[in-house]
Design a binder for these strands. Structure first.
Lengths: 341, 341
DNA sequence: TTGAAAGCGCTAACAA
DNA sequence: TTGTTAGCGCTTTCAA
């Protein structure tokens, strides 16, 4: 239950134990080929026997190379970012680069702080969610002299590179699909549109698509805190109490949408004939609901993959050109809750 | 779209720009009081204007202090670890310590690798899920000379300190509660019990409690991959097809349980009278289901909090004694799917 | 209150 | 193939 207060071992300790110079030990431990098999084995066995763990702090300082990629995202409990992380990890795990995550809770001040912390470790690149950042944050990213990939969103101007989808377009396309399916009295339910720029852009695109066809959102319902599933339930109930004539509900994400869907199934609504439902994100957790919510894939894993590839390419060849904007194309999945046009 | 290939600024740059020695600049930036207000302001304005971000690599090497806490967990998409992280962050964000997360995917080899990587950054402490580790992993943790807190589980011997619940006891208590409620033909559904030691321990405790009352698990159903909600649905259907006489189902977690619950509601089962259901974890995401699944709180946030406090205490006073084993007490929530005894 | 010197543990660059 | 030398950018320590 107690531990020996050992000073961590250094290269010098291994050097002395193996009778090989520090430099050669270092070479062996980094697999730099040019070492004879004999000394290699000698060093390796000594290092392993002693339980030596190299000090990356010192290594990084000396080599001016830090194999970390800062990944800065608003939240982890969200269902969307774990998948982005999966994409990132998948790419980086075949390389020496390692992702390190920072969470901003959708707060610009916290983003600034987290960014500062991460940059002070001099990572090899930054992957950061969104295109909206405070001026100091933008300045830091500019000045860092490392590749910066802004992810999730392409509606705006990236600092360096961007990989994502156009949320404005996503909203617009869902709006059009809903109109094509013949729905006309449409309600919107979602997170309070403030910090979440992407949800806001979807909303804007959505209303824009309706407006083009002379239709206005009939009613809206917003929430800010609490379990999304429960909120979906409550909000759906209250919007339909207010406007029983609605024939379609567009949710800002699948989880609230699922809450609404469950409630409406219980209430016996005739879905998708009398009323349609649609969400956003294509959350796999929800496979297993009584029926499949119409949704739009937000390409999360792909976004992570592409972003990581950009960083990796730069790490391997630092004068590669910036990737610019990479806009992926999400597809609508009609599920069981939207009539086909 | 392109960035100036600036060499990152150093203390020396700020020193020259402000006409103050490097040493004094360093003191100002670290808020070490003993600096005159005049120079303080001079330095601060220069640093801000230039956009200087300190190099923690160099700082850490010089001071032999790294304010990072390694947090090593099996998965993030899991609903359980995000909450643990919340508890940890809550405590650490008032301190200079910062959590850094590593993911093992429940693979011992990957745990070993991740641990090695993290330890090579010489963190101030390690928080690691579970009590089961490979020999090399244990050796590394022993030799690191930093506080190690093993979390989630207390059924076993910690390397240094442990904070968690007894999963064996959790299973036992749920078993007893189910028996007290009068259920007798009991099925178990869950993840394939291999890598997930805590699920296995709950299963063992559960069967043990039944055995003490002369009852054997009537049937079991295991899964390894896919959406937990969908699997819950499928497994429930298939176990009840095989054994329509079952009067209670115990799930290894709430998400599979919820899948089963949704399916059974659709099928019109009489819950909790004819058949009871229970899960594990008290996942808040599920608030909003048609009815509340019986479950057991696994104290996730509290575990994170306590673990972080142990590391923090050691960081502030390194000769504090080890915290030993801290066993929290989970409570059963009967919800709507288990008769009260 | 400020500065100068030394060195944290490692690696780049060069020499042998 | 191996070793030597000189830092990486900061902080510690001690002197002014």
């Amino acid at each position: 239950m107690s531990k020996p207060p050992t000073r961590p071992l250094t290269l010098r300790d291994v050097s002395e134990a193996s009778g090989v110079s520090e430099m050669t030990v270092s070479r062996v431990l980094r697999n730099r080929g040019d070492v004879s098999e004999a000394t290699r084995l000698k060093v390796l066995s000594a290092a392993k026997r002693m339980g030596y763990v190299p000090n990356k702090i010192a290594g990084a300082l000396a080599s001016q190379r830090v194999n970390l990629v800062a990944v800065i995202i608003p939240s982890m409990s969200n269902m969307v970012f774990p998948e982005v992380m999966t994409g990132i990890s998948r790419v980086l795990e075949t390389s020496p680069l390692q992702p390190v995550v920072g969470i901003t809770d959708y707060l610009p001040e916290k983003e600034e702080k987290v960014l500062y912390e991460m940059l002070s470790w001099r990572p090899s690149g930054v992957i950061i969610a969104g295109l909206e950042h405070s001026d100091p944050s933008r300045a830091m990213l500019q000045a860092a002299g490392i590749p910066v990939v802004e992810i999730m969103d392409t509606d705006g101007s990236p600092i360096d590179a961007a990989v994502g989808i156009s949320h404005r377009r996503a909203g617009r396309e869902m709006g059009r699909a809903i109109l094509r399916a013949g729905y006309r009295k449409i309600g919107f339910l979602g997170t309070r549109l403030g910090a979440d720029h992407r949800a806001r852009k979807r909303f804007e695109g959505f209303t824009e698509a309706l407006a083009k066809n002379g239709i206005e959102i009939a009613d809206t319902e917003f929430y800010s805190e609490g379990s999304a599933l429960a909120k979906g339930r409550e909000m759906t109930q209250s919007i339909l109490a207010r406007r029983p004539d609605l024939d379609c509900l567009y949710y800002s994400n699948d989880i609230v949408g699922a809450g609404g869907l469950l409630w409406m199934i219980e209430q016996g609504y005739d879905i998708p004939n009398k009323i349609g439902l649609a969400g956003f994100n294509d959350v796999s957790l929800l496979q297993g609901l009584p029926c499949k919510l119409a949704t739009m894939d937000s390409c999360r894993t792909e976004i992570g993959r592409r972003a990581a590839e950009i960083i990796l390419a730069h790490a391997e060849n630092s004068d590669a050109p910036s990737a610019g904007k990479v806009e992926l194309t999400p597809t609508i999945n009609f599920g069981d809750t939207l009539r086909l046009s």
